[in-house]
């Protein structure tokens, strides 16, 4: 039994990571293009270099948080406190800048603080054996109070533009730094999920935790590391956030989590774990930010953004499941 289940698992892991562009990715691409065409027809300001640059700019933080979320979801977990992780890391960066520290140091402090918070999350969930959704919901509350305590109801604002110049600048006058960092992060994650034991273990745990354990995967260590990693990525996102907006406000990171979960799941990463698609996450992020930008341009107040994302999430997942259900009516919800 153990040999057959081991090879089953190996097959599941191999199938689990979609490294090529498949049906889901093409659907998302078509949705992006369709949305772009509609917004171009509805608003003259949509298809301009300036506006598309804004859309690309708005994708930066979500791409990083979405990558972290994808890794965690791949192993069947979730971290809904990641938005607050971004917030706390941003406050740390803002305080360092205000205190006159070097912007490079502040930029590095972001991912370090994020990683430290990821360590807390990992300890609570993995060492404390608490279900991820409940544990991170609890942490969400704790972090929200911590943010209030640190900000005292006031914004950190008017930060020097140096951090932004550093992070949104160009390497050798050509290559944008933010693009390079994101491409590097995704390339590393791609290699990890394709070739490295850690990435394969993530997929194995997501596909069948018990089988993975029996096959010798160090389940707890892998899960622990994944949460630290997603915290690190969220902290990195905070560096870019502060660099661009030059302020830190009370509501920072509020809707980032839903957007990140939506981007991952839209992209074809299974919320049950065991299936991941990085290109899907990227396209999911682009679609979400494109829709938010377009709706704002045609005059829909930004208050509606979370409504739109929520509906999009349900719509895409429903379409997928209706397809599945046509095959078998009796599929059960896995716990």
């Amino acid at each position: 039994m153990s040999t057959s289940s081991t090879s089953d698992l190996a097959r599941a892991v191999k199938r689990g990571f979609r490294s090529v562009i498949g049906g889901r990715e093409l659907t998302l691409l078509a949705a992006c293009l369709g949305a772009a065409v509609i917004f171009t027809l509805l608003s003259r300001n949509f298809l301009t270099v300036a506006n598309l640059t804004v859309v690309a700019r708005n994708c930066v933080e979500l791409l990083l948080v979405g990558l972290g979320m994808t890794l965690v979801i791949t192993m069947g977990g979730i971290d809904i406190s990641l938005g607050m992780t971004v917030g706390i890391a941003a406050i740390a960066i803002g305080n360092l800048l205000t205190a006159g520290f070097d912007p490079l140091l502040a930029a590095i402090a972001g991912p370090l603080v994020g990683g430290a918070l990821g360590l807390v999350t990992a300890s609570v969930i993995v060492l404390g054996r608490i279900p991820a959704i409940v544990g991170t919901l609890g942490l969400l509350g704790v972090y929200r109070a911590a943010i209030y305590l640190m900000l005292g109801g006031q914004w950190i604002s008017g930060l020097s533009p140096e951090l932004g110049q550093l992070l949104n600048g160009r390497i050798a006058w050509i290559f944008p730094v933010n693009f390079a960092v994101i491409a590097g992060a995704y390339a590393a994650a791609f290699l990890m999920l394709r070739r490295m034991p850690f990435g394969l273990h993530l997929l194995a745990i997501g596909a069948a935790e018990e089988k993975a354990r029996l096959s010798g995967v160090k389940v707890r260590r892998t899960r622990f590391l994944a949460y630290v990693m997603s915290g690190f990525l969220a902290g990195l996102a905070a560096s870019f956030y502060v660099g661009t907006y030059r302020n830190v406000e009370m509501t920072i990171g509020g809707t980032l989590v839903l957007d990140a979960v939506a981007a991952s799941v839209l992209g074809g990463t299974s919320i049950l774990g065991g299936r991941a698609s990085l290109s899907g996450t990227i396209l999911g992020v682009v679609l979400i930010r494109l829709l938010q930008n377009g709706f704002t341009l045609i005059g829909v107040p930004s208050l509606w953004q979370s409504v739109v994302t929520g509906i999009l999430l349900i719509l895409v997942l429903s379409l997928e499941n209706v397809d599945l259900l046509r095959g078998s009516r009796t599929r059960e919800i896995a716990v």
Binding site: L272, W304, T309, G310, I311, L324
Partner: peptide, 23 residues
């Protein structure tokens, strides 16, 4: 009926309901 995981379905409706109330 649609067989969405409760966690995801209600996370999405939390944002829809809460967002609608504010919007």
């Amino acid at each position: 009926r649609i067989r969405l995981l409760p966690l995801i379905a209600t996370l999405a409706t939390l944002f829809i309901y809460g967002g609608l109330a504010v919007a």
